[in-house]
């Protein structure tokens, strides 16, 4: 078992554990913090796959910007109490069972695919580097890139319009 494999298993366990904590924590603030941990674990996976650009963006955008936004909202609305009234027990159970079934079915379906012989290249390969992605992004994908800026603008306008007091 080399260092890469150890890292892979470690990060996977961290990711799954943190994800479970996200949905089981009573306090929303803890949920946010556990989610940030999950994102860090996933970024670790990105680095392991040598997708450095995405790893950094993931931390900046997700762990940084988005989760801070979540925290802000929770704090501002004073939701950091374990106030959530319990859902119907049976409905909760049904939800968990349904989710579990989905996992089971998907695993069963994907277990025997031909793709399982394939390997994902870890530690090496330079396609995840900023230089390579930037070249591609500003040549082949320049139009979607520009359109996404319009999307941001409209999302911003939308957020302002929805969020403002009448």
């Amino acid at each position: 078992m080399n260092i890469t494999q150890i890292l892979f298993w470690f990060l996977s366990v961290v990711a799954i554990f943190s994800a479970l904590m996200v949905i089981t924590s009573k306090n929303p603030v803890y949920s946010v913090l556990w989610l940030i941990a999950t994102f860090f674990a996933i970024s670790g996976h990105y680095i392991l796959l040598n997708a450095q650009f995405l790893a950094i963006v993931n931390i900046i955008v997700y762990a940084g910007a988005i989760m801070v936004l979540f925290l802000f909202v929770i704090m501002l609305m004073n939701l950091n109490k374990e106030t959530e009234p319990q859902k119907n027990r049976w409905l909760k159970m049904a939800g968990a069972v349904a989710g579990g079934c989905l996992l089971l079915v998907l695993v069963a379906a994907l277990k025997d695919t031909d793709i399982k012989q394939q390997q994902a290249l870890v530690n090496e390969g330079n396609i995840g580097l900023i230089k390579n992605l930037g070249k591609e992004l500003f040549t082949k994908y320049v139009v979607p890139f520009e359109i996404s800026s319009i999307l941001f603008l409209s999302a911003m306008v939308g957020a302002v319009v929805i969020g403002k007091k009448e």
């Binding site: 939800g95 349904a98 989905l102 079915v105 379906a109």
Partner: peptide, 20 residues
């Protein structure tokens, strides 16, 4: 909303099972 989502997931499971 919760019920809708639950139904959606259950339907997905059923579709996957049928396909399987």
């Amino acid at each position: 909303v919760g019920n809708y989502v639950l139904l959606m997931v259950v339907s997905m499971v059923i579709i996957f099972v049928i396909q399987f």
